[in-house]
Nucleic acid binder design. Sequence first.
DNA 1: CGCCGCATTGACGTTCGTCAAGTCTAGTGG
DNA 2: CCACTAGACTTGACGAACGTCAATGCGGCG
Lengths: 239, 239
Amino acid sequence: MIKDTIKVACSNCNLRELCMPVGLSEEELVRVDELVASRRRIKRGQALFQTGEKFSSLYAVRTGFFKTAVTTEDGRDQVTGFQMAGEIIGLDGIVNDHHTCDAIALEDAEVCIMPFDRIEEISREVGALQHHVHKIMSREIVREHGVMLLLGSMRAEERLAAFLLNLVQRLQARGFSRSELILRMTREEIGSYLGMKLETVSRTFSKFADEGIIEVKQRHIFIQDAEALKRLVNPQVCH
Amino acid sequence: MIKDTIKVACSNCNLRELCMPVGLSEEELVRVDELVASRRRIKRGQALFQTGEKFSSLYAVRTGFFKTAVTTEDGRDQVTGFQMAGEIIGLDGIVNDHHTCDAIALEDAEVCIMPFDRIEEISREVGALQHHVHKIMSREIVREHGVMLLLGSMRAEERLAAFLLNLVQRLQARGFSRSELILRMTREEIGSYLGMKLETVSRTFSKFADEGIIEVKQRHIFIQDAEALKRLVNPQVCH
DNA sequence: CGCCGCATTGACGTTCGTCAAGTCTAGTGG
DNA sequence: CCACTAGACTTGACGAACGTCAATGCGGCG
């Protein structure tokens, strides 16, 4: 039963700094440890939740990689984000008590289940948690502003460069290389996220490779000239 | 001093159903009335806040019309939303304690200022308010998913049709006509929001007008065939 | 070994952006 | 009252970027 306790204790979790507020007292830590009801494993290709499903919990990614996507009635869909360890999924469900997007595992994954009523309850007692929840939601809003900027005003090369830089930066924050990454998603999923067709994604990768900016081996990407990518995202910043 | 009290009391505000949770007890209403510290008038063209400014409050639009926009270092900007009476502005500032977008009044406006620390404080006591705040943030996230879908996978006509339908639906919820509206923003601002150039916005308006779907008199729009607009947003939904 | 899904590449077409000219309207000042 | 102006809007001609369609390559898995 010690194992059980460890299994769902945020206070011992190596992802704590990513999911949880910092600087909690002993007492607060104990409360916050009650947040995670249990864990759940999701196989690659399986849905953590789907559009229309009743909302009950937020999920913190423990291992693996997800995409979230919205779908129109006529079948088009739009990937709205990719989530990796330490990131929170499910915020879309709060407003109408039902999820409005699908969350699909792109590789075998495990999530911590945090029942939302429990989050609200503990938030009322632990101010730091309350503020943390607000920050997580605000961060998602700001992230989406960035995606809107990307979709609304960038061209294909800029979009893909921004995408790669964002991915590698998040991976770096998790202790991975800042010059090498493995894409967990298909070209089509990248394209859906970035508002371009898979062929354009592929062509743009090839173009970057020709220019010596990256090396592409299927889903394995080596970043050889990060500065060039940054210049692409921010063209002609004078001075 | 009765006037003063009335001036900032949410409980008497005709926008209450839009901003505030419903079904509060007497006691809770009294607490929630403490949310709004004061009001502020903003002249057309003026900023309610700007990128980089310290975050302290959320704002509820009382009268008037706003746009929010993010800007890149190289000067491109992207309108991220248009806000009308009863809608909340400023959620972007929570995560980093500084605003990450500009909020500009598109016509003379008035907002209720709700200091965020006070929101958090009262939220801890009034569960309905806490949940309401979560819903507002979740709604914004879901709205942005919709914009991403629009920007990522729709063509110009579909985007503009979706935009018009969305505007008129929100105006209708505020008691305005569902077939007539006045645009408070320029073609360029519409274009920025929808990821297209002002010329394309103008051409698409003209095309709709030619087809008898709408009538355009500068910023005055009459919707003559709402069904046609809906069909444009959702092309070929069979059955 | 052969199949299947994913990725790459080429040829061609469409949509939308760019550039430029011209119109309309509201606001200003004579 | 009217002329003038500035900003917003419309429209046309043209081109670039990206989508579409199709053929082919590649790698992993049964």
